[in-house]
Design a protein around this nucleic acid. Structure first.
Length: 281
DNA sequence: ATCGAACCTCCAAT
DNA sequence: AATTGGAGGTTCG
């Protein structure tokens, strides 16, 4: 299946920019394989087109893929609202075509709870372990794989199960989040229809979710492009390039609000570029 | 309200 | 070879 982006799009920068954790390069490194919404997908890209091959035919098809990739985001417009400084301009040129993804909110929540005090390879291995231990096993034309587990499946697997596969102190948080959703019979996708502030407030209620993780979930899965996760890397960028001397004593959510005012309604896009640049330097 | 320490686990660097 | 420090944060005191 072929997708055409009207705007610059870089599949590689997007899939490996630290927002999604179930993508990998195959032996032929131009092929990227990932699992999205229980479907295995292989993606390649040339100058003008994005090629997708699905492991099996499900509800997840062309339309869903376009949404996942956020093909509709007009990067030229987004850049133009922010490219008022040298540092962002540099990042933008370096990673031209990097998009925010629209992921599943539940998977996104769990993976970013797992990101606390962790590094990317370990987050990936935890996501894989959770899937293989309690996610649904699926067979497709390429073989077998495991979908990311539902809240019910995680709930059933339990805190001890999660601890057993290496979640550590995060096991309690993930288990509790799952039980809350099962208990309340809520689908996190519903948060997409809320305002940024409302959804933020609701997300913070989950254990293991503070301002940073909540903003990641809002940005990468809930269509809130003004969300601005403040982590150690972004703090460094802001201090080194955007803020005056004594910014040390500004709390994280203070920095977040400052950045949202500074970068505007697409602040989350600025965040992703600045983060990516800082992380790879 | 604000601030530092503690938290599971895995590894890379002593 | 054993030990320490740190990793995209949050919670608890």
């Amino acid at each position: 299946m072929v997708l055409i982006s009207k705007f610059p799009y870089s599949i590689t920068e997007t899939l490996y920019s630290g927002q999604a954790f179930r993508w990998k390069k195959l032996e032929n490194p131009s092929v990227n394989e990932g699992i999205v919404e229980g479907t295995r997908i292989r993606v390649t890209q040339d100058e003008e087109k994005i090629y997708c091959e699905f492991g099996n035919s499900t509800a997840f098809g062309e339309d869903a893929m376009g949404k996942y990739l956020r093909l509709e985001d007009d990067l030229s417009l987004i850049y133009s609202e922010m490219s008022i400084d040298d540092y962002f301009n540099q990042a933008q040129k370096q990673y031209n075509g990097l998009h925010i993804l629209r992921q599943d909110p539940w998977e996104c929540l769990v993976t970013f709870i797992c990101s606390a005090n962790n590094n990317i390879p370990r987050i990936k291995s935890l996501v894989t372990a959770m899937s293989e231990n309690c996610g649904q096993k699926i067979i497709d034309q390429f073989g077998e794989f495991h979908a990311f587990p539902t809240p019910g499946e995680i709930f059933q697997f339990g805190e001890d199960g999660l601890r057993g596969i290496g979640l550590g102190f995060r096991a309690k948080y993930v288990a509790k989040a799952a039980s809350m959703l099962v208990e309340e019979e809520t689908d996190l996708k519903y948060y997409r229809s809320l305002s940024y502030e409302e959804a933020l407030e609701k997300l913070i209620r989950f254990p293991g979710v503070g301002d940073k993780v909540a903003n990641c979930v809002l940005l990468f899965s809930m269509d809130k492009l003004q969300a601005f996760p403040v982590d150690v890397w972004i703090k460094r960028v802001l201090r080194e390039n955007y803020l005056e001397g004594n910014s040390e004593n500004i709390p994280d959510n203070g920095l977040r609000v400052w950045a949202q005012n500074h970068f505007g309604r697409f602040a989350g896009y600025a965040n992703q570029y600045l983060f990516h640049k800082k992380r790879l330097t």
